[in-house]
């Protein structure tokens, strides 16, 4: 029985996916391409861990061989951690198998040979429910399921033939200089309405007055590079759930707002009364941030 097969290049996420399979009482096997990860994964509660030994430095290079095994083993669901590598490998496997795939699901159930999923569309404006017959592939982001710990599962090694047409030249770690916003109780978020880099001092002053962390929109991190990429909020960035989310010069496009849906109170400062952010805010000030932010910072320092 190979009901559910799991892979993630992040072992902690693989463990969460085992949590999903166990919650629904499926038989579950983890595959990995790395001996180090294999020894870490044996304690995660799967029926077994299979080390696919192919001697490639790039996990995605194993997709074709893995698709062959999934077919041979009669796997119903191949569940993959939704990381850049995971999504790539998962979609390649689905391509080789010619089967359906649900990406980055927010809900997932496997019952009677049918997979039902929910996922966001249009950057979060829409929730779509879908159903697939098996075999099927799914990618699941972290934070959806609780990892389980179990007695050590047996480890099996299978030699596979990776696709060596993509060669690794070098890998350079990106410094994780960004702050972790996922647990921050207060966030001041900066958008493209802040026009010059030196004006970030205004935002930092406001954040200090509130004892808040700084978040931002995609453009501030990816185009302007004023805030580390780990701190941009939204569908392709992080999701946050602070008590207070105060945005400055953020228009409130859905791709950003989907990341703050769990905030308790949302406050917006924007000069455009028609900006969509005001429809999704609890409180707001329509005004020029350059006039409002210094006054607000002073008032907060006095109030606290």
């Amino acid at each position: 029985m190979n009901e559910v097969l799991i892979y993630s290049d992040k072992p902690s996420l693989a463990a969460e996916l085992v949590g999903f399979a166990r919650e629904e009482e499926h038989d579950v096997t983890i595959v990995t391409f790395s001996p180090e990860e294999a020894s870490e994964l044996v304690g995660c509660g799967a029926s077994k861990v299979v080390l696919l030994d192919g001697d490639s430095d790039i996990p995605e290079n194993n997709a074709r061989a893995l698709a062959g095994l999934i077919d041979e083993w009669g796997v119903s669901l191949f569940a993959v951690g939704a990381t850049p590598r995971g999504r790539d490998l998962a979609a390649r496997v689905a391509g080789y198998l010619g089967c359906g795939m649900a990406s980055d699901v927010s809900a997932v159930h496997l019952l009677d040979g049918k997979l039902s999923t929910e996922r966001l569309m249009y950057g979060g404006a829409m929730v779509r429910s879908e159903e697939f017959s098996t075999p099927v592939v799914v990618t699941i982001p972290s934070g959806r399921f609780e990892a389980v710990r179990g007695v050590d599962s047996p480890l099996e090694t299978i030699v596979i033939q990776p696709d060596m047409r993509v060669h690794l030249v070098e890998r350079e770690p990106l410094s994780q200089e960004g702050a972790d916003l996922s647990c921050a109780p207060r966030i001041v978020s900066v958008g493209m309405g802040v026009s010059k880099r030196e004006d970030m001092a205004l935002i930092e002053g406001l954040a200090a007055a509130l004892d808040a962390r700084i978040g931002c929109t995609r453009g501030i991190a990816e185009e302007r590079g004023w805030v580390p990429a780990e701190q941009y909020v939204g569908i392709s960035g992080v999701s946050v759930a602070p008590d207070l989310y105060l945005s400055v010069g953020v228009s409130g496009q859905v791709q950003h707002m989907v990341g703050v849906r769990d905030a308790k109170v949302i406050v917006a400062i924007d000069k455009n009364e028609k900006a969509p952010i005001f429809r999704e805010a609890d409180f707001g000030i329509v005004g020029d941030l350059y006039a409002v932010v210094p006054l607000l910072t002073d008032a907060l320092v006095t109030a606290r």
Binding site: T83, P84, R85, V166, H167, L168, R171, E172, L174
Partner: peptide
């Protein structure tokens, strides 16, 4: 990628 830049040919 997450946490790294990778150069490939």
């Amino acid at each position: 990628l997450d946490g790294c830049l990778e150069t490939v040919t």
